[in-house]
Design a protein around this nucleic acid. Structure first.
Lengths: 238, 238
DNA sequence: TCCCGACAAATTGTTAACAAAACGGGCAAG
DNA sequence: CTTGCCCGTTTTGTTAACAATTTGTCGGGA
């Protein structure tokens, strides 16, 4: 996954700080709900507050931090209902993505994606610590379809905005009993529809797929709104 | 008088500049493709470059300005194909909006919206300079449905992001022969479906409505896909 | 004991100056 | 006459200091 040595020499400091902060949030180094104190983080990244504020605005645009005028910024913390809203938006957007991908995705990309699903199946079959990888793989599947739809606005909305938010919360609902295998089967059906250039079916299947994922999440989280702080259920580690 | 003595005293300068710039762009005071020189605009708004840069980042998030790292910011200029992409995203998003509005929109809001359509019909019947108003009215219709869907993520994506972009380009395709009357009829059917709480039909009708608008636009603009600057990815030497 | 107001510390918003990179015009060579 | 380079100007990126607002705390009084 190509950790970047120091290819950022030519880009602006703002973007470096933006990337660093984004990765800190997605990896969990900064947790949902954490307050962001500008002087502290500026020193931590070895820059001044100017570029850091700049980066904060970009993250705010990506919905990864929330900013209240005179009180400062916090890492975003989605409630249960907000997560459901996110699923609904994804259902609409990714449905359209599939419809377009059926028309516009080149054959070789479709075959690559088919190979990716083969690898996913191998991982799921082996069943070993597969939850994490499956989630990344799930995102990867959706990611590639977004690339294939050839609509840059859609691709950007999905890849730059919504997927980061999903990644933030993937660990919470990943290890649901039979979900990975069912999800993989749904992926196969979607890809088949795209291969058949049947946009209508592809859209329908993708929407059902995301609706199923949402239902799984809703069942897993029948409780009240949880705003961020969670009991970390780390099982593979230690 | 005394409408606003100093209502902006508590709001930050950045937001004031953001609102001012947004309105300048939407009203056409700043035209698509215009370069934004920070010192000039900062002086024009009576502030310094800090808040102005801040406002620029917010506008960039709303897709109203584009920023290239060491070359500055420009008012966004959508090509024909980008406008089509925007229609596709709207079709997906507003379809879902309608589906949700059928479930969640309160009855009194539905009746208010019905009254709004009556007023639109009166304007269209009279036919006097109706194109501009119809466009604003069209946006108003979609705006209210977005409010009624009770999904804040959807509402924000539509009202805060996409509608501003549409407003920027509404004058170009508004006065198409029979479109206003047909659009109004489509609005009526959509509203009826919402009143019947038939989310599936409401979604289908809204998607068809936006698809029709897109086709009208595509016919009006059969020319090449440039509406301003499309050439910025040019080669260096020849 | 509890509530309230004022003070103090910390944090955010804003400004102006400094550094670096890009743009443009003029000049010289082919 | 064209082409390429050089240099001054303009514009953007960055920094550090200043101002204003919020937050937390302490003390007094009911």
């Amino acid at each position: 996954m190509a950790t970047n040595p120091q290819p950022e020499a030519s880009v602006t400091l703002s973007e470096q700080v933006y990337e660093a902060l984004k990765s800190a949030i997605v990896t969990g180094d900064l947790k949902p709900g954490d307050k962001i104190r500008e002087p502290e983080l500026a020193k931590r990244f070895g820059t001044s507050r100017g570029p850091l504020r700049d980066a904060l605005r970009r993250l705010e645009a990506r919905h990864l931090v929330t900013n209240t005028p005179n009180a400062g910024a916090r890492v975003v913390s989605l409630s249960r209902s907000q997560l459901i809203e996110l699923y609904q938006v994804r259902e609409a957007l990714e449905g359209m993505t599939c419809r377009l991908a059926a028309d516009n995705m080149p054959a070789e990309e479709i075959e690559e994606l088919s190979g990716l699903l083969d690898r996913h199946e191998a991982v799921v079959r082996r069943k070993e610590g597969a939850e994490y990888f499956r989630q990344e793989g799930d995102l990867d599947f959706h990611f590639r379809i977004a690339m294939g739809c050839r609509n840059d606005l859609l691709r950007s909305a999905l890849c730059d905005d919504h997927y980061h938010l999903m990644r933030l919360y993937r660990h919470k609902y990943s290890n649901r009993s039979g979900r990975p295998r069912r999800a993989l089967a749904e992926h196969r059906m979607i890809l088949d529809a795209i291969r058949d250039r049947d946009g209508e079916l592809a859209e329908l299947l993708m929407r059902r797929h995301i609706r199923n994922a949402r239902k799984t999440f809703e069942q897993a989280f029948s409780g009240p709104d949880t705003t961020g702080d969670n009991d970390d259920t780390e099982k593979a580690g230690r």
